[in-house]
C-alpha cells in the first residue's frame, strides 16, 4: 500500500519536474530576442558580419559597450530619460493622489460629474490629440525643454482610478476620528492616508516610470537638439562607422533596456497589481 503511494508521489514529482523544465525552456524562447541582443552585444564585429550567422561569441568582448558609451551621447540620453521618467512619475503620484483623495473622502455637488470627466479622458487616445498638444507646447515655448518633454505625462486617469479604489477601502470614520482629534484635512491626507497607501503609491510610481521611460513619439516630436533627446529616440539614431554598426547598437539597446527590465523583475508583483486596476491587492 505504502509502496504504491510512494510510487504515485514520485510519478507526480517527475511529471511536475518535466512540466517545469518545459515551461522554463518555453520562457527562454519567449525572451529569445533579448538573449539574442545580449549575445550579439558581446560579439566581435567580424563575427557578427559572418554568414551564416552564429550566436555564441567566439571571444566575449566589451568593445561594443565601450563604443556605445564613448563615441555617442548615450550617457546624456540616459540622464534626460531619467529626469523625464522620475519627474513624471513623482508628479503623477502627487496629482493623482490629491484628486483621488477629493473623490473618495469628500462629498460635494458635482463629484460624479468630475469623476466622469476624468474617466472620459480614457476614451481619447493621446495620438489623436498629438498635433494639437504639440502646438500648445510650442506656444508655451517648451520645445527642447525637459518640461515640454514630460508635461503631457503628468497625469493619467487610470492612476486616479486606481488610487481612488484603494482609498475607498478605508472607512470614512478613519478621517472623522482624526478630525475630531483636531487633525486638519490636509494633515490627515499627508500624515495618515499617504503613509497607509504605500502599496498603491509604489504601483503608480513604478508603472509610470516604465511607461514614461519607454515613450518614443512625444519626446521625438518636442525635441530637435541632439543633447535633449531621450534614450528611446537616441537609440534609433545612433551613428557608427560602417561595418561595426550592429554590435554597438545592440550594446546600447541592452543598456537602454536594463533599467526597466530590473525594475520590472524586482517590482513584478506591484506592477501586476497596478495593471489589473486594483483587482489584485498588493
Amino acid at each position: 500500500m505504502k509502496q504504491i503511494q510512494n510510487k504515485r508521489i514520485s510519478r507526480r514529482t517527475t511529471i511536475s519536474l518535466v512540466h517545469q523544465t518545459l515551461a522554463i525552456l518555453l520562457g527562454l524562447v519567449i525572451i529569445a530576442p533579448i538573449i539574442y541582443a545580449l549575445l550579439i552585444s558581446f560579439m566581435p564585429a567580424n563575427q557578427i558580419l559572418k554568414r551564416p550567422p552564429t550566436f555564441i561569441p567566439k571571444k566575449w568582448i566589451l568593445d561594443n559597450y565601450k563604443m556605445a558609451i564613448t563615441s555617442t551621447t548615450l550617457g546624456r540620453f540616459m540622464i534626460n530619460s531619467l529626469i523625464m521618467a522620475l519627474t513624471s512619475s513623482i508628479m503623477r503620484v502627487i496629482i493623482s493622489s490629491m484628486a483621488a483623495y477629493a473623490l473618495s473622502f469628500y462629498k460635494f455637488k458635482g463629484r460624479n460629474f468630475i469623476f466622469m470627466l476624468i474617466m472620459g479622458t480614457m476614451m481619447i487616445p493621446g495620438d489623436v490629440v498629438l498635433v494639437s498638444n504639440y502646438q500648445t507646447v510650442a506656444k508655451l515655448g517648451l520645445i527642447n525643454t525637459y518640461l515640454g518633454m514630460m508635461i503631457i505625462f503628468f497625469c493619467n486617469a487610470t492612476n486616479i482610478f486606481l488610487m481612488r479604489q484603494y482609498f475607498l477601502t478605508f472607512s470614512l470614520t478613519l478621517k472623522e476620528a482624526a478630525v475630531i482629534d483636531g487633525c486638519s484635512n490636509l494633515r490627515f491626507f499627508l500624515q495618515i492616508l499617504m503613509p497607509l497607501s504605500t502599496p498603491v503609491i509604489t504601483t503608480v510610481f513604478i508603472s509610470s516610470f516604465i511607461s514614461v521611460w519607454n515613450q518614443y513619439l512625444w519626446p521625438m516630436l518636442v525635441t530637435n537638439e541632439n543633447l535633449m533627446r531621450t534614450v528611446q529616440v537616441g537609440v534609433t539614431m545612433l551613428n557608427f562607422p560602417d561595418g561595426v554598426v550592429y554590435g554597438p547598437v545592440m550594446a546600447a539597446s541592452i543598456l537602454v533596456l536594463l533599467p526597466t527590465l530590473l525594475v520590472f523583475i524586482i517590482f513584478q508583483k506591484r506592477i501586476v497589481g497596478g495593471i489589473m486596476g486594483g483587482s489584485v491587492k498588493g
Binding site: G27, T236, V256, F264, I265, Q268
Partner: peptide
C-alpha cells in the same frame, strides 16, 4: 520570463 516583454520599449524592440 513569460511577462518580461511588458518591460520592452518599441524602439529597443525595433533595433533588435
Amino acid at each position: 520570463m513569460f511577462a518580461l516583454t511588458m518591460a520592452m520599449s518599441m524602439s529597443v524592440a525595433a533595433m533588435i
